[in-house]
């Protein structure tokens, strides 16, 4: 089924669109999002991937190579945005894996999706913090990370999830 659908080409197109929109949104709403010392980080690409895993579980006959595309998106993120290879190329597939495990336990809908996305964003930001701390890219204390980065980022991304969940579901149904 996957081979024959529009999804095969549509999925990567929207994946890269989300990836580039992350950078564009950070640039355009720079003043609002990076008000020092707090920082809100947009993770639209994670939203697209997690929604893929949620809607994939909704209709079981539609397995997608999500983890592979997540690794590709992570590689582009590392090389183009951060310049440090080896962080998000592992974190994005891990997010897909975790989401698939959670989805197999919890019946996914809008509200439980919100919960799953909460866990995923915490995972992305937490592991990103640990990795950048390990290579001395930042020297923020753990408590400062929780207050200044994780809190605002979760707020922004959960709001994005609420706004974009139904449009993204529509896009997936259209591509199928």
């Amino acid at each position: 089924m996957y081979r024959l659908s529009k999804l095969r080409f549509g999925f990567p197109v929207f994946l890269f669109l989300a990836l580039f929109l992350d950078g564009a949104v950070s640039q355009v709403f720079n003043v609002q999002m990076f008000r020092y010392p707090t920082a809100m980080v947009s993770h639209l690409v994670v939203l697209w991937l997690v929604c893929g895993a949620i809607f994939e579980a909704d209709n079981g006959d539609f397995p997608m190579p999500l983890a592979r595309w997540a690794a590709v998106a992570g590689a582009v993120f590392d090389l183009y945005y951060t310049g440090i290879f080896g962080i998000y190329v592992f974190i994005f597939p891990l997010v897909i894996y975790v989401t698939r495990r959670l989805v197999s336990w919890i019946n996914p809908n809008f509200l439980s999706g919100l919960l799953i996305y909460f866990i995923d964003i915490t995972l992305v930001e937490g592991l990103g913090y640990v990795a950048s701390r390990a290579v001395h890219l930042n020297n923020a204390a753990g408590s400062a990370f929780l207050v200044n980065t994780l809190g605002p980022t979760l707020a922004l991304n959960l709001a994005m999830f609420v706004i974009l969940y139904f449009p993204i579901r529509w896009v997936y149904n259209w591509l199928k």
Binding site: F20, D22, G23, A24, V25, S26, Q27, N30, F34, A39, V41, S42, H43, Y80, Y81, T82, G83, G128, Y129, S132, L137, N138, A140, N148, T149, T153
Partner: peptide, 15 residues
Amino acid sequence: AVITRTPSSWQNQVV
């Protein structure tokens, strides 16, 4: 011209 900004709180970096 600035094309984009790194969406990360650890790197204040623009392209």
